[in-house]
Each structure stands twice: as C-alpha cells, then as structure tokens.
Amino acid sequence: MTRARWGGTVHLVNDASNPSSASPKVTARGVSKRFDTTAGEVIALERFDLEVAQGEVVCIVGPSGCGKSTFLRILAGLDTASGGELTVRRDNPDKPENAVVFQEYAIFPWKTVRENVAFGLRMRGVPRAERDATAAHWIERVGLARFAGAYPAQLSGGMKQRVAIARALAYDADLLLMDEPLGALDAQTRLTLQEELLRLWSETGKTVVYVTHGLEEAVLLADRVVVMTAHPGRVKTILDVPLPRPRSIETTTTPEFAALTGELWHALRDEVARAQGYEVPA
C-alpha cells in the first residue's frame, strides 16, 4: 500500500505475517519539505533520514524552526513531503496507521471526555457499546474516570492533555506520534505526565516518535534522541540513551542521566545559538 499524494512517496507495508521482523517500523529516506513563499523558497526539512524500530521510543529535539514538527506532521499524513521516501510498516491492516497527540490539547470542546476519547473509534465505525467500553478503559487508565461526562472547559490543562493521550491510545495504532504534548503545561504537571507516559508505554509497547524541546524530557523518555539543525532542518546527530527501564522521575537524579543530558546540550548548544541569530564558527 502506498500513500503518494506528493513528490515523495510513503509506503505502507503490510507485513502481518511477521510482526517481529527486523525491518524497522518507520523508515525515512531523504524526506524533504520546501515551502514556496513570495520571498522565495524556504527549506523546512532537508534530506531527513531516520529509522525507528518496533517498540522504540525516539525523541526529536532541535531549535525552533528546525522542522521537527513538520516531519511529525508528514509522518502523521497531515502534511505532504516535497521529496524523499517514507515507509511505515503496518502489522495489522485493520488498525489505523498512527495516532497523534498535539501540543495544544486539540480535544473538542463540544464533546465530553468520553466522546473525545471515543472519537477515533467512532470514525472507524466501531459499534457504540464497544467504543464506550474502550473509552472507559482508557479514561480509567489516565485517571479521569470521575470526569468521563465532563466537558473540556471544566478540566485543567494537564487533564485535557490526559484526555488527548487517552484518545490516541484508544485509537489503538501501533505508532504513536506526539508533538510537544507537554509543552504547554506547568513543571509539576509535566513531571507527573512524564511518569504516566513511561508507565503507559511500558504497558502497551507502542512505537513512539516524540517531538520536544525539553532536553531532560527527551533523555528521560527516549531510547534514542535525534538532534536536528535549523535552516535547513537536518539530522545533526543521534544520541543513544542506554538508561535501563523501567524509568521514573528518580532516573533524572542519576549521574548517567546528568551525563547524557550534558552530552545532548553540547550537541544542541551551537544549533540553538545559531537559530537565535548568534555568529557561531561552524
């Protein structure tokens, strides 16, 4: 199955026979994105290469404007690439290809928590009783059982984002795409949700591509961290995070964590400075 509505190609490989096969879940080869503006061509993403293995958690960090969100949107099918090749292996053609968690919650204010979580299932045509049961399960898992009938206006920011996470998990795609999901939350709420994500991922074994601007967050959550450069957006380096799982907030107090965060900052520092307009010798 091929999704090819643009210059590049997305292959959706059906490989139900061998779900644990060695072929990666996501393969991006030379994916690029160019915008035509009246001021000329802007290159948001240039020859982006990445492989994500089944069950792996990959965080993408980089200065603002490096195209990390653009890549995620292309991967989600919400935007089109200008060139390159993107392959997403699908192990079960009945399941959706991916589920997205957006930065600004993006839950529907006019639907209750239950209706929001069940939304993706409803769009897939899942019968009402079944989708209500699934929604109830995930609402319970993110600790919002008391608020199942509430509207988003009655929830705090952290609770709204938990609804968005429950909606993505209830959709039951193997590939979870998260675009700075905790970026708009305060520090304490972010910590509790990071632990919640670690727990949910370890229980579900999803493949995760996670865009963030938080270095500690990236090291805490990821198996590998992709560092990007800005203007044009390219992969600068990929950092392995060999910290053992299960992880928790306590992981952040270990010397290994500090060393990895330092290494990541070292890789990123010049990029951030350059993105902010400082002259940095290459």
């Binding site: 959706p96 957006f102 600004e104 839950i107 993706g120 769009m123 909606r167």
Partner: peptide
C-alpha cells in the same frame, strides 16, 4: 482552531464527519 481540524483528520474523520 486549525489544530482541531487537524485532530479531526488525524483520527480518520471523512468530509461528512
């Protein structure tokens, strides 16, 4: 809010939905 439109599309809503 455009992000709500994206969310609708991301979770498989067709034009009528």
């Amino acid at each position: 809010d455009p992000v709500l439109l994206q969310a609708g599309r991301a979770f498989g809503a067709n034009r009528v939905a």
